[in-house]
Computed example of a mutant assay.
Amino acid sequence: MHGNFAIRGAANWLHLAASPVFAILGVMAAFDDGPMASICNASGNNPFFAGMNAMYFLMALFHLPPWLHLILGSGNTKC
């Protein structure tokens, strides 16, 4: 019974990890000069918000509601 409680507690807080991880990946991808950077960023106009960077930042935005619930104190951290 206690193991199940620990798993649920960990799962409650695990969803908070998604948004910061995607934001970090977006920043890392923005400053990547490797061979994949030219393939993933075909536009070349604004490399910070293009290609994989845009996807990572959008994913960070879509996973933001649990943080907003936590910050605003709604009491419900489950989404």
Results as ranks from 00 to 15, higher is better:
57 F>R: 04
62 F>V: 09
54 A>Q: 03
65 P>H: 03
11 A>L: 13
29 A>D: 10
41 N>C: 07
44 G>A: 00
73 G>S: 01
7 I>L: 14
37 A>P: 03
19 S>L: 00
44 G>V: 04
5 F>H: 15
24 I>A: 09
68 L>G: 08
60 A>L: 02
27 V>W: 05
3 G>S: 05
11 A>G: 09
57 F>A: 02
66 P>G: 07
67 W>D: 01
37 A>M: 05
44 G>E: 02
46 N>K: 14
15 H>R: 14
58 L>H: 06
78 K>S: 12
55 M>I: 14
14 L>K: 02
39 I>D: 09
5 F>G: 11
34 G>M: 10
58 L>M: 13
9 G>C: 07
61 L>D: 00
22 F>R: 00
26 G>T: 01
60 A>Y: 03
58 L>Y: 10
25 L>Q: 07
70 L>M: 07
8 R>G: 15
64 L>Q: 07
41 N>M: 00
57 F>M: 09
62 F>K: 06
17 A>L: 15
10 A>T: 12
30 A>M: 06
50 A>M: 04
77 T>N: 14
75 G>W: 05
46 N>D: 14
75 G>A: 02
13 W>L: 13
14 L>P: 09
16 L>Y: 06
60 A>S: 04
66 P>T: 08
5 F>Y: 14
32 D>P: 09
59 M>P: 04
66 P>H: 02
18 A>D: 04
47 P>F: 03
7 I>C: 12
3 G>N: 11
46 N>W: 15
30 A>Q: 00
69 H>L: 10
56 Y>K: 08
59 M>S: 10
76 N>P: 07
7 I>T: 15
75 G>E: 04
76 N>D: 11
65 P>R: 08
26 G>P: 03
61 L>M: 10
78 K>G: 06
50 A>T: 11
64 L>N: 04
11 A>I: 12
18 A>E: 02
74 S>T: 10
43 S>G: 06
44 G>K: 00
6 A>Y: 12
37 A>D: 01
55 M>R: 07
75 G>I: 00
24 I>L: 10
12 N>G: 14
14 L>H: 06
16 L>Q: 01
17 A>T: 15
78 K>H: 11
49 F>A: 09
50 A>F: 08
75 G>T: 11
23 A>F: 09
11 A>S: 11
41 N>H: 03
3 G>H: 10
4 N>R: 13
20 P>Q: 09
51 G>R: 00
18 A>M: 04
27 V>L: 13
54 A>N: 05
28 M>V: 15
45 N>I: 13
46 N>H: 15
8 R>D: 13
32 D>E: 10
61 L>H: 01
9 G>D: 09
1 M>Q: 14
24 I>H: 00
75 G>K: 06
13 W>E: 05
38 S>F: 12
71 I>H: 08
55 M>E: 08
34 G>V: 09
57 F>C: 02
76 N>Q: 07
56 Y>E: 04
20 P>M: 03
21 V>D: 06
68 L>C: 12
25 L>Y: 12
59 M>I: 09
47 P>H: 11
49 F>L: 13
40 C>L: 15
